[in-house]
């Protein structure tokens, strides 16, 4: 089993963190993982994306051209990545910030009011956690408890309050659908 994932949005939406948490969770579950960010001049202009591969086999290349799963946090990312998803793949998008409708009929499409939910929980910037929660539920890729562990590996300096809030966002997403 190899799952190739792309996460994409604006800088500041926690794109890189989401990718690293996912990869860390895979590592905790003893899978082969890679994480690959967009880097350098590509970062100018405020967009960010990253690729994560979670697999039972050693990962050949961390670069993902045709993902199985795509998590989209903003409008430009939808335009860019929707066409690249493998037939039969899955697109999860942040409905709060994206007004267009995905067009593909050969993939599963999941829309989430991620920012609305995050703000209800008290913090817009945990929208990425809500998305991750939904994603692992829908794909059965990794366990919820592992993600909670993994976010602690990413946010080493965060206080307990923030970590608990992140947990809540993960749970909320996980319980949504």
């Amino acid at each position: 089993m190899t799952k190739e994932i792309i996460i994409s949005g604006f800088g500041g939406q926690g794109i890189v963190s989401s990718g690293i948490i996912l990869a860390y969770a895979g590592l905790i579950e003893d899978k082969h993982v890679t994480f690959f960010p967009s880097y350098g001049a590509e970062m100018r202009g405020g967009t960010a994306n990253c690729s994560v591969v979670v697999s039972g086999e050693p990962v050949a290349s961390p670069i993902v051209a045709n993902p199985d799963i795509v998590v989209i946090m903003n409008e430009p990312s939808l335009t860019r990545f929707e066409p690249t998803i493998k037939p039969g793949g899955m697109l999860l998008y942040n409905k709060t910030l994206i007004k267009s409708q995905p067009q593909r009929k050969d993939i599963a499409v999941v829309s989430i009011e991620a920012n609305v939910i995050a703000e209800e929980l008290g913090q817009a910037r945990i929208a990425n956690m809500v998305m991750l929660g939904v994603m692992i539920k829908k794909t059965k890729l990794l366990n919820l408890e592992t993600l909670k562990k993994a976010q602690r590996k990413r946010f080493v300096k965060a206080n307990d309050e923030q970590l608990a809030l992140n947990d809540k966002a993960l749970e909320k997403g996980y319980g949504l659908l």
Partner: peptide, 10 residues
């Protein structure tokens, strides 16, 4: 190369 340097792995 840039891929090995920029990639995260265990």
């Amino acid at each position: 190369d840039g891929l090995l340097g920029q990639m995260m792995e265990p």
